[in-house]
Nucleic acid binder design. Structure first.
Lengths: 207, 207
DNA sequence: TTCTTCATGTAATTAGTTACATGATTGA
DNA sequence: TCAATCATGTAACTAATTACATGAAGAA
């Protein structure tokens, strides 16, 4: 009967989903794969665990059903939950946190081969392309007036625009970096920096 | 005497730093604050723990000194460590993972007030501005021919360019989103999507 | 009927963070 | 000589992941 620990951003992320409608746990995992996971990625098992904490705090209610012999739990938000969510939205929140293994590999590229760096960048381009396609498909669906939660479109669009711009930025960077690495000698350790490129970066950073 | 668990990306991040030069643990934490933390953020205490694992695997060596009555541990990479790093660089690696609490708040903005959304976006703009300034200062230092590790400039520049572009993208998005939210009615739940804006996003996603 | 995929959940493990503790150094 | 900051490290905790297990539903 230990007291649940404090609410985390993950708790509020799920609470936010519950504010839209009630979901079964499995539906929550679907939503994580679709939209939420792009800005707040969490493992599936978290989505089975975290709502229990919301219930313990009175922010959500669980209702148990049966599908054959199996249990299914559906969660809904409570009035207290709505107030808690509103209070959370008043706080400024944290800026973006980025974890980018491929960039790390580029950063240490002089310890590997030129081919390594080029294939890492190719993987980055492929990643951006794939993400973009999924994102674009969703946007087109909405544009066609389909897709769920049309009443949340104004908010959804802002977040979607961020992801769109992010994927485009990643793709453009990877392309540019590829042209840079192509100019390297075979031993990346001997690569000399492109002075004009640095000046260009400084220019892009001046706004 | 339990066997160390497998090497993680964090292990390789530190191994990469050791490939540049030997560092004391504290110097590693400085480096995390400066450069590494922008692409692979980890808590300080990790930097005291992770090198021990590298030593256990024979990828690094620890040398113990004394500063007055206090111990200081300095780590250096071994030949095995260099080979392990090179092997890691051959694998494609993971694409960017983003955690963005403020974006989550925008995504759920209809549960709060218009003022909440605007202040969240203001915080995002401030974040981008601040990060950009630090980044720009570093770039200018390099451009002036100062700064450490001039021989790694070609690699450093590629990573720096990514961050530059990222910060600029975040700032531009936050400005654009602010103009969008400014057009909302007082109740964000009543905000209607801007059809032209959606078309514009689709255009930006088409490349 | 069997295979595959959808759906539901728990248990074990770990990577990572927060908090704590304290010595060394420097400058007011 | 006192306070503040730099420097060094450990311990306790927890958020999150990976792995596991299995029933239901629909296709072949």
């Amino acid at each position: 009967m230990s007291r649940a620990s404090a609410l985390t951003t993950t708790s509020y992320a799920i609470l936010g989903l519950l504010a839209v409608k009630s979901w079964s746990t499995y539906e929550l995992t679907r939503q994580m794969d679709r939209s939420l996971g792009r800005m707040w990625p969490r493992a599936q098992s978290k989505l089975y665990e975290e709502p229990k904490k919301l219930v313990e705090y009175g922010l959500a209610e669980a209702s148990a059903e049966r599908v054959g012999r199996r249990p299914r739990t559906t969660y809904s938000i409570t009035p207290i939950g709505r107030r808690a969510l509103a209070a959370w939205l008043q706080e400024p929140g944290e800026g973006p946190v980025l974890e980018f293994e491929q960039l790390l590999k580029i950063f240490f590229a002089e310890c590997g081969t030129k081919a390594d760096a080029l294939s890492t960048l190719a993987a980055t381009r492929a990643w951006a392309k794939q993400r973009n396609e999924g994102n674009l498909a969703a946007a087109r669906t909405y544009l066609a007036g389909e897709g769920p939660f049309q009443h949340r479109l104004a908010q959804h669009m802002l977040a979607g625009a961020f992801l769109t711009d992010f994927y485009a930025m990643v793709a453009r960077w990877a392309e540019w970096a590829t042209t840079m690495v192509n100019q390297w000698p075979d031993d990346p350790g001997q690569a000399t920096p492109d002075r004009a490129a640095i000046e260009e970066i400084v220019r892009r950073a001046t706004w």
